[in-house]
């Protein structure tokens, strides 16, 4: 080793590992919020590195809208087995069946907002005091204000104007009974950083991220996959396209982009040349200028 400095990717990794170790030290029952998307996969990978050679110390929690890509579920179950970790599922379908939430109606109906109730109910019933997420500050303007250690009151709500100051690397996770924290170890990463890291570490990700042929419809400026969960009518005309997904979420609202990138190297190249933000293909963020902030205040990821 001739140089005595870290490059930015190494520094971001070291920072994230530091944050994850602080979580293990400061909380009694922390979980990783696992969506099957690349960000939560990277956080899971970092947690594995942070505690090596000890056993993976966190359970994975999946908030299941019931509208999943089958590939994501398969990936999730395989990873759980590999890690020897516990899986906790918060089910939106169950919340609907129990009458905790009411399903939206119409062509653009989405279970996105319903996830908040399923998430908070599961946090409460499992007495989770910290939920680690893959949120990044570069994703969205409300997320740009997020702390590494973000306090949630006993209603699970975020109060963006009254956040705890966070200085140096001194993270304060103290909380009262019933409150919890959201912790974001990769706050300082950008989409490009995540992809470069996946490439560098050769981290396995769902096949959906690679270019593949799929039946899709053009809606809200992106290619929405045809699935049993999608509400379609005569205005929609399905076509087969070679696409890939930049983010993964609810199958009814996650749009793909046309792409030929079928290897990690090609994806990194493609992302570097990209002129649209990744959330531009997410219908959930397009409802209003402050839709993310509003959902976050209520307790969203």
């Amino acid at each position: 080793m001739s140089k005595y400095y870290l490059n930015y990717l190494e520094e971001l990794e070291s920072e994230a590992i530091f944050v994850l170790r602080e979580v293990a030290a400061q909380f009694r029952n922390p979980v990783i919020l696992f969506s099957g998307g690349k960000d939560s996969i990277v956080v899971t990978h970092l947690a594995r590195k942070a505690f090596y050679p000890a056993k993976f110390p966190f359970a994975l929690m999946h908030v299941d809208t019931g509208h999943n890509f089958p590939e994501t579920m398969e990936f999730r179950d395989q990873l759980i087995q590999e890690l020897g970790a516990n899986l906790i599922v918060g089910s939106v379908q169950e919340a609907i069946d129990k009458g905790r939430v009411v399903e939206e109606k119409g062509r653009n109906a989405s279970r996105n907002v319903l996830q908040i109730t399923a998430l908070l109910d599961t946090i409460e019933s499992n007495q989770i005091d910290c939920a680690i997420g893959g949120g990044r500050r570069d994703e969205e303007k409300a997320r740009a204000k997020e702390r590494f250690f973000s306090h949630r009151d006993d209603f699970g709500q975020w109060d963006p104007k009254n956040q705890r100051p966070e200085l140096w690397n001194l993270f304060n996770g103290k909380h009262f009974q019933g409150e919890h924290f959201r912790v974001f170890p990769i706050s300082n990463w950008t989409e490009m950083d995540v992809w470069n890291y996946i490439l560098k570490e050769n981290i396995a990700i769902p096949s959906l991220y690679f270019a593949h042929e799929r039946e899709v419809i053009w809606r809200n400026n992106s290619w929405i996959p045809v699935s049993e969960h999608l509400n379609m009518d005569e205005r929609d005309s399905p076509v087969t396209k070679k696409i890939r997904f930049r983010t993964l979420g609810d199958i009814t609202i996650t749009g793909g982009i046309e792409s030929e990138a079928d290897t990690l190297e090609k994806i990194v190249e493609e992302v570097a040349a990209m002129r649209q933000t990744e959330r531009g293909n997410r219908a959930d963020d397009k409802r209003s200028e402050s839709s993310m902030e509003d959902r976050k205040r209520e307790g969203y990821f």
Binding site: A142, P160, K161, M192, D193, E289, S290
Partner: peptide, 26 residues
Amino acid sequence: DGLRDEREQGITIDVAYRYFTTPKRK
């Protein structure tokens, strides 16, 4: 601009983090 209050009032209340990369640095 970040939070709704800030957009409405045209001020910056909190700390906001911005990211950019050039071929030389992040």
